[in-house]
Amino acid sequence: MKSLLAMTLLVPLALSASACVVVVDGDKSSENSRSQSDWERQESRNRQALNELHTQQPMAEVIERMGNPDFDEQLRIGERSYRVLYYRTQRVESDGMTTKDECTPIVFERGELYGWGENQLKVLLSSSN
Rank of each mutant, 00 (worst) to 15 (best):
I77L: 13
V92P: 07
V107L: 04
V92E: 13
L5C: 06
L13W: 07
V23D: 11
M66G: 01
G115V: 02
E112N: 12
L121S: 02
R88H: 01
V123H: 11
S30L: 11
W116A: 03
L5I: 14
S16T: 12
V24Y: 11
Q57P: 06
E40H: 08
W39P: 01
S37H: 06
R45V: 09
R41I: 15
R76L: 07
G117I: 04
S81C: 00
L9K: 05
R45Y: 12
V62T: 01
E31I: 14
I77G: 05
E43R: 08
H54R: 13
L9Y: 06
N51K: 11
K28I: 12
S126A: 12
Y82E: 00
L121R: 04
Q90P: 05
S81Q: 08
S16V: 09
E93H: 13
T99F: 02
D101F: 01
S18F: 09
C20M: 10
A60Y: 00
D38K: 08
M59V: 11
M1L: 13
R76V: 14
G111V: 07
V23Y: 09
R80P: 04
V23M: 09
V21E: 15
D27I: 06
S44D: 07
K122V: 11
A19C: 12
N119G: 10
L4S: 10
C20F: 10
Q74C: 05
D38Y: 09
E52M: 10
E118P: 01
